[in-house]
Write a protein that binds this DNA or RNA. Structure first.
Lengths: 210, 210
DNA sequence: TTACAAATATTACTTTAGTCACTTTTTCTT
DNA sequence: AAGAAAAAGTGACTAAAGTAATATTTGTAA
């Protein structure tokens, strides 16, 4: 029997969810909470397999509760259940390692499926949530092209600037005079239409040179 | 009627999939291909709503095919269907913007659900696939804590530096005198044990302040 | 070799950044 | 309301960055 903790502040909704979940005879709601704090307290007294948490709750919200539960009860699987598919919430939840992020408008089946999937180590995301979050996650992965008119030497200098070196340090590392480094830097500023080394450093990082 | 293109080199498997999919009377397999190249050729002749591609195929594999189809037929939804949940494959596919990545061991229902979800702009990932891929994606998101001894004002300045502003520009934006900005900057340099604004900009970016 | 271009160097100069000691203003506390 | 503490400002100074014109070196193609 799968023991589920249901944390949701609106009693009506909670009753509804409970009924929905218990349609499946392998699952049983053995604990109910009005807010995050209560959920944590309950977990300290009872053993649950899965916690279903609403994001928006008084006193302690779902994200906070998830954070606490994660660290205190590592075996407990957590499902976030909410009406909002706010990107930031989803990201926060995923970072905490929850086993699912479901919208309340989903069908009964999918909630039951998610509960069972969570226990098998799965991660359930509703399709529309996944579609929204994925681009944001992949953003960090994109590669950017750097100005091709830069010579190898200039790239080297740009890279150094991106590491925060001073002209003197660069001159030493590259075996050049400080004057040359300055001149080169001016060249780069010209080509990239930037103003100072700080902007160059930003450019270098954003273009994955460092 | 949803028109599906099925690309899968093993005839038996293809037949099976076709039968599975067509259980649903809203969906029809109106094209079949042995490999990626054929799939592309078919798409040039016929109109499809969804392309279901096996990853491993002779001549042109699913990833390659997806790449081509994506650019030539932007409206076409693509589902990758494979026996392997190799992380790299999944990532590659997601970067291409496919609408789903399904394992062949899934049930009929979920494939049909994914086809319909794809048309609504959803992104279907089987739970076990999502669970595997997510950690890799979140890695790039690692949260970095920024020095808590920084005051809000100092953070604001640090943020500006990370955007490449000069002292004068910052003074204007924040309604401060240039002198104050300089002093604050010195403070920040002190606290973070850095040397100049370039290093501050690097810090700001690396700590996701900008 | 000459001639030319590219990379490097030198010098002199201007501007911006950064430090420091100290003052003024604002804000909060008791 | 007095006084402490934080935030903002001033001015004078030094160091570093950035500009520009011009020179030196070096490789290489005519």
């Amino acid at each position: 029997m799968i023991k589920v903790l249901l944390a949701e502040d609106q009693v009506m909704v909670r009753q509804g969810l409970k009924a929905m979940i218990e349609v499946d005879e392998e699952i049983e709601v053995t604990g109910e909470a009005d807010n995050g704090r209560q959920a944590v307290v309950l977990c300290e007294k009872q053993l649950f397999d899965v916690a279903v948490l609403d994001i928006r709750m008084p006193e302690m919200d779902g994200i906070e509760a998830a954070k606490v539960l994660r660290s205190r009860f590592p075996h407990l699987k957590i499902l976030m259940l909410t009406t909002f598919d706010d990107n930031q919430y989803v990201m926060d939840a995923l970072k905490l390692g929850v086993s699912g992020y479901m919208l309340k408008d989903g069908d009964t089946e999918s909630l039951i499926r998610s509960i069972k999937s969570a226990l098998k180590g799965g991660l359930s995301l509703q399709d529309q949530v996944a579609a929204k979050v994925m681009p944001a996650l992949l953003e960090n992965e994109e590669k950017v092209t750097i100005d091709p008119t830069l010579t190898p030497r200039e790239r080297a200098i740009l890279k150094c600037i991106g590491e925060g070196l001073s002209n003197k340090e660069m001159a030493e590392r590259l075996g050049l005079s400080v004057g040359t480094v300055k001149n080169q830097t001016s060249q780069i500023l010209d080509k990239l239409e930037l103003r100072d080394r700080t902007q160059l450093a930003i450019y270098a990082i954003r273009h994955r040179l460092v």
